[in-house]
């Protein structure tokens, strides 16, 4: 009876499971080069790079891309400020209602996106707020706060309270302590949180469909192409772009925080 050495079956199941998580994404890349534009025939009858040029020249792709980037940038900035503030407060003191606040922060990602989306949609309807970039940002910033918060609070917990006291003893005021002591220590965790938040926002579609009205972000554009396809390989090219724009920040976030107990990305 040995538990120290994995059986062949276990190894196969584990590595097979990991492969199962990754192989489908590779297919997206393959189909971006296919010459067949009407069906998803496998194997592709021929390979071509023409779809990259076609996608580049499609005028309907650029406005959604800009909108997605704008929304992700604003939401990330808002979430970084709000998430850091609440993490700082939660790390420094125990106070009445602390548990409730931590539940409130997690709720937007713990409940299904359709509820967040439908709630915002109801609120816009009742208050007669017209759809705009800002209605999308309202939703995105809300569920991005928790991402920044998670990263910041994990780092703050590891940080010794003594360093802020030492800073105060040496004559620094609260703002100087924040600028010269806390920020350098928090920096990489905040950056990692920001990148994950950006990736999450750039890719979000469920909440967005409820808060966008007639506007189209890149994921909404993709969704429309999935339902009513035309020039299917172009959708694959866009999917590759979306994949890369979310993949790079996630990888960076991992490298910024790896090796610690607070490695980014442990929860979403």
């Amino acid at each position: 009876m040995r538990f120290d050495r994995p059986s062949f079956g276990l190894k196969l199941a584990a590595i097979g499971g990991l492969a199962f998580l990754h192989l489908p994404i590779l297919l997206i890349f393959l189909y971006a080069f296919t010459t067949e534009e009407r069906t998803y025939a496998f194997p592709p009858p021929g390979l071509t790079t023409q779809w990259f040029a076609v996608a580049w020249n499609r005028a309907d792709i650029w406005p959604p891309l800009y909108l997605s980037l704008r929304v992700a940038a604003i939401s990330t900035a808002l979430a970084m400020v709000l998430g850091t503030l609440v993490a700082g407060a939660m790390a420094q003191a125990r106070f009445f209602g602390r548990e409730q606040i931590s539940l409130l922060i997690i709720l937007p990602i713990a409940l299904p996106g359709v509820i967040t989306g439908m709630s915002l949609r109801s609120a816009f309807a009742i208050m007669e707020i017209p759809f705009s970039t800002w209605t999308i940002v309202l939703g995105h910033a809300t569920f991005c706060i928790v991402i920044v918060y998670n990263n910041a609070v994990a780092r703050l917990r590891r940080l010794s309270g003594a360093i802020t006291e030492a800073s105060a003893d040496l004559g620094a005021n609260a703002f100087q302590t924040f600028r010269h002591v806390l920020l350098p220590n928090l920096g990489s965790a905040l950056l990692a949180g920001g990148m994950l938040a950006f990736a999450l926002s750039f890719d979000e579609v469920i909440v967005t469909t409820f808060t966008a009205g007639q506007q189209s972000t890149l994921p909404i554009w993709m969704l429309n192409e999935l339902v009513r396809p035309r020039q299917r390989p172009v959708t694959n090219v866009v999917a590759m772009v979306v994949f890369v724009v979310t993949f790079v920040p996630i990888l960076l976030a991992y490298y910024l925080t790896r090796g610690g107990a607070d490695t980014a990305g442990g929860g979403k």
């Binding site: 584990a14 990991l18 998580l21 990754h22 489908p24 994404i25 297919l27 997206i28 189909y31 069906t39 998803y40 025939a41 496998f42 994950l196 990736a199 999450l200 890719d203 579609v205 994921p219 993709m222 969704l223 999935l226 959708t235 694959n236 999917a239 979306v242 994949f243 979310t246 993949f247 996630i250 990888l251 991992y254 490695t263 990305g265 442990g266 979403k268």
Partner: peptide, 30 residues
């Protein structure tokens, strides 16, 4: 490798993953 191998699919684009399966499961697909 295992950590990254689980975390990357967790965070990578939801819609891209769904789309990949549309390619896989289509009648003429893989």
């Amino acid at each position: 490798a295992f950590y990254l191998g689980v975390m990357l699919p967790l965070w990578s684009s939801y819609l891209v993953k769904v789309y990949a399966w549309k390619l896989i499961l289509a009648k003429e697909g893989i």
